[in-house]
Design a binder for these strands. Structure first.
Lengths: 229, 229
DNA sequence: GTAATTTTGTGTAAAATGGACACTAAATGA
DNA sequence: TCATTTAGTGTCCATTTTACACAAAATTAC
């Protein structure tokens, strides 16, 4: 007779936010050992009768109260020893949040939840640094072939925000004219009648992502794809 | 006090093979309930002190004896109820096997292991049909931007094999001249001095994939990418 | 052994896409 | 009103992609 398996299943989420040319990640401070006091990705054990997706959503809600605009499975980490207590297999998720939804819920102990700029990260508990790196790579790849960048902007945004977002995430300059030409040629942005007043300089039209149109185009074989010099 | 979690962790693999313009998947016949007698993906429970990757490799070895040429994590399926007995979270893998390694080991009960052509699949146990569909989608996407197609061919192959492989997987015609031009332009194939004698018709040069060269190019910013009309 | 058949191997021209590049417009602040 | 800041726009050239057809080398059938 085989001895029963004793492995826990957890979910963890890497949730990105973007504002003012800064990419951020949502972290929580651990209240218990191991790694008590360290920062870690939000997450926790999966309950016995909930799906993985439900589990992440619940944990995110409980721990941060932040509304997640986009969520997909990232990768599953399961090397023995990644948690010093027990064998834990962690199914990780990749999330994006619009600045419209940045606010950390007052329900949670707000001191223990924070947005960290991606270039000022604290040390992370467990193997969460690797998970984070994996998520960042996914983000870098995916914005080139899926319209997920919009999830990181306000619902209505000036074109320059989109431009800066791509430059920040990909960490390189992009020609403004070519970029705009390309994106607009897709026909998935709707121009609103509002305008945005920058602190100084010419006002900008506000655009919004037209998800319905995108879906429609996609069904007809259209493929979102950006290339850079 | 929370009640302890009772979730099992399994691994399952979708392993593809290709020969004679047919794409196949490696399946095993279940010897026990539930779904006794049904065909299923090879896989099983993860042992407490082995990594996920080791677990799949072990299961594949034990159940099929087939040498896997390429293996990567696919997706994790964990909906409650997918196994009627217990809650099982299954970390699935995506594998490719060269025709050089098709042979199912004599160690295993060979009656219970079989290559099934992708268009003559039996009903599958559990949610394995969904897993298979996911893997197939991955294959279709991935051959366009990673040189994994070569893992499905013999070490040395005539160009037409590669051509047919792509046409089979993508299920469409590809212009022979443009395809060859494109692939050869990458400079990742080495021409061998051998030739292949088709049953009739002009003999063909044999090529092999030059993994070292590919890696080298990749490090210098080269990106394998195929587009089709 | 000649002709028909099968599969391999190759080039070019036209069209579409990608990349480089600089100035004007509309606002604010000094 | 002038300087500064950000938004908005078009053209030309280089590269890539696509469409497209015939000759070469072998086997098979007659």
């Amino acid at each position: 007779m085989k001895k029963p398996q004793n492995i826990r299943v957890a979910v963890d989420a890497v949730v990105f936010g973007y504002e003012q040319k800064k990419l951020s990640v949502l972290l929580i401070k651990r209240g218990i050992e191991p790694f008590k006091g360290s920062w870690a990705l939000p997450g926790g054990l999966v309950l016995e009768d909930e799906s993985l997706e439900t589990a992440v959503q619940r944990e995110l809600q409980e721990e941060t109260g932040v509304t997640i605009d986009y969520l997909e499975q990232l990768y599953t980490f399961g090397k023995p020893g990644r948690d010093p207590r027990n064998r834990v297999v962690s199914v990780t998720y990749f999330g994006l949040v619009s600045p419209n939804h940045f606010k950390i819920s007052a329900d949670t102990d707000a001191d223990d939840v924070e947005w960290f700029s991606i270039d000022k990260l604290p040390n992370l508990a467990f193997d969460h640094d690797i998970i984070l790196k994996t998520a960042l790579q996914r983000l870098k790849n995916k914005i080139n072939y899926q319209p997920i960048g919009f999830e990181l902007l306000k619902k209505e945004f000036p074109f320059s925000d989109l431009e800066n977002l791509y430059q920040t995430i990909l960490n390189r300059k992009i020609d403004r004219r070519n970029f705009r030409k390309k994106i607009l040629s897709f026909g998935i942005l709707t121009e609103t009648d509002k305008i945005h007043q920058p602190s100084s300089g010419r006002p900008a039209k506000l655009f919004k992502f037209n998800a319905k149109k995108y879906k429609e185009l996609e069904e007809n074989g259209f493929h979102f794809e950006i290339k850079f010099a």
